[in-house]
């Protein structure tokens, strides 16, 4: 025994002035608009999600640290290695070295000193050599060093395994 259900086609569809029909059309329009709006609200973020972001992938273990020609011999630059700064150094002889730029003492950002040919932390005069070894001042540990790969015009830096 089926109860409480009205066949949708039971109403007289030929009477456009039927108040129930007008209500029904209103419900349908409301529903249609709602469905459409929610569909847009759901599909829009998904479509945006599908677009690959411009920023380099944080999950990757190698990042683009610079370009060939950007660094003169005997100079250095800070690059972003994941969520931390890294230091790319071009030695006086033209070699590339890369290491973490976070001083192991109090986490200041280190820099390359052209006059000393060494890596220097301005906060407490900590010195590291170009292999990241702490050679003077308060730093207790060497800087983590990274592997440098030159691929064409690009200089990539990756974590040593």
């Amino acid at each position: 025994m089926t109860l409480a259900i009205t066949d949708p086609d039971r109403e007289n569809p030929s009477d456009p002035r039927s108040p129930s029909l007008a209500r029904r059309r209103f419900a349908e329009i409301l529903l249609g608009t709602g469905f459409l709006a929610t569909a847009v609200a759901f599909v829009y973020p998904v479509l945006r999600y599908l677009i690959p972001p411009k920023a380099s992938d944080l999950g990757s273990d190698s990042v683009l640290a610079g370009r060939v020609g950007e660094l003169k011999p005997n100079s250095g630059k800070i690059f972003r290695f994941g969520s931390r700064p890294g230091l790319l150094v071009r030695t006086a002889s033209g070699e590339y070295r890369a290491m973490s730029a976070i001083c192991t003492h109090l986490s200041c950002t280190v820099q390359y000193r052209q006059d000393l040919h060494e890596v220097w932390c301005a906060c407490h005069n900590g010195l590291y050599d170009l292999n990241g070894r702490n050679i003077s001042g308060p730093p207790p540990r060497p800087l983590e060093t990274f592997e440098v790969q030159v691929r064409g015009e690009d200089i990539y830096v990756r974590r040593l395994k």
């Binding site: 409480a4 259900i5 409301l30 529903l31 249609g32 608009t33 709602g34 929610t38």
Partner: peptide
């Protein structure tokens, strides 16, 4: 938009029933 659908559905159910 979701609320719109909910109201619409309620009305529609009322209509067909």
């Amino acid at each position: 938009a979701i609320a719109l659908v909910l109201v619409g559905l309620r009305m529609y159910i009322k209509q067909i029933e």
